[in-house]
């Protein structure tokens, strides 16, 4: 078994930058310089996945910086899966700790919004709670429901106005220049009846949604966050499709 096993080990060395390990397996030792193509292909494939999965980050920092940032991440974060839709989960925390991005303190949070978008996009297709599910129920019965959230729902918080910055950098259209504010922001990203949807939410709504996500009843979650914003949000929530289908939670 040694022959091919050691070839595979030699190629792995090459993927880490040591092409010389391949020399015993080459017909022409002088070809060794070409073996860098494999490592380059890998790093550009991983880097391209990050560009695809983090478009707002890429737009904020520009193509050239994004390529360098993506390469620095790819060099230190091998993929554990052949699914490139799942590559880069740790990119936001990498950005938080990456010295060259320290002048952009909100960038990690913007990346968290991009990742929430990816997760929402590929979440399971199950139907959200429908208004018809509440027909015939009285207020007490509705308050006793614990629907959980639709699998696509992601809530985000930032100490900066990261949601506003993220949202204005998602599309190709030129955005108005936004001032960075140290003002906490909360956002909701999910796949609703009309596709991926996002909006800023008030802090009490974030508390309410986290309680629902934790399995609390609608009544208990409203008691935890009894502010008007929560009541207004709840009135709209069935149309938005953010709650789980209740028959599945029973």
């Amino acid at each position: 078994m040694a022959e091919t096993a050691s070839f595979h080990d030699a190629m792995i060395s090459n993927m880490r930058g040591n092409s010389e390990a391949l020399v015993p397996y080459l017909r022409e030792a002088s070809d060794v310089g070409r073996a860098r193509v494999y490592q380059n292909n890998m790093l550009s494939a991983l880097g391209q996945s990050l560009v695809d999965n983090y478009p707002a980050v890429a737009r904020l920092v520009g193509d050239e910086f994004m390529r360098a940032l993506a390469r620095a991440f790819a060099e230190t974060h091998p993929s554990s899966s052949p699914l490139m839709t799942a590559y880069g989960r740790e990119f936001a925390s990498f950005i938080d700790g990456f010295p060259p991005t320290q002048s952009l303190p909100y960038l990690g949070d913007v990346a968290r919004h991009d990742w929430a978008f990816i997760e929402a996009l590929f979440a399971s297709d199950e139907a959200p709670m429908a208004a018809s599910a509440l027909q015939g129920l009285d207020d007490a019965q509705i308050a006793a429901l614990a629907p959980g959230l639709h699998p696509s729902v992601r809530t985000l918080k930032s100490k900066w106005n990261a949601y506003e910055i993220w949202a204005s950098n998602r599309d190709e259209q030129a955005s108005t220049k936004l001032a960075l504010k140290e003002a906490p922001s909360h956002a909701l990203i999910w796949r609703g009846p009309s596709g991926i949807t996002h909006r800023a939410i008030a802090a009490p709504v974030a508390v309410f949604l986290r309680a629902i996500d934790d399995g609390q009843t609608l009544g208990a979650a409203q008691e935890i966050a009894p502010e008007p914003e929560t009541i207004i949000f709840f009135a709209d929530a069935l149309r938005l499709g953010v709650f789980g289908a209740i028959d599945k939670t029973r």
Binding site: Y25, Y38, M42, A45, M84
Partner: peptide, 10 residues
């Protein structure tokens, strides 16, 4: 580990 390229075999 997934090496994100089609690596050759002898």
């Amino acid at each position: 580990i997934y090496y994100a390229d089609l690596l050759p075999t002898p």
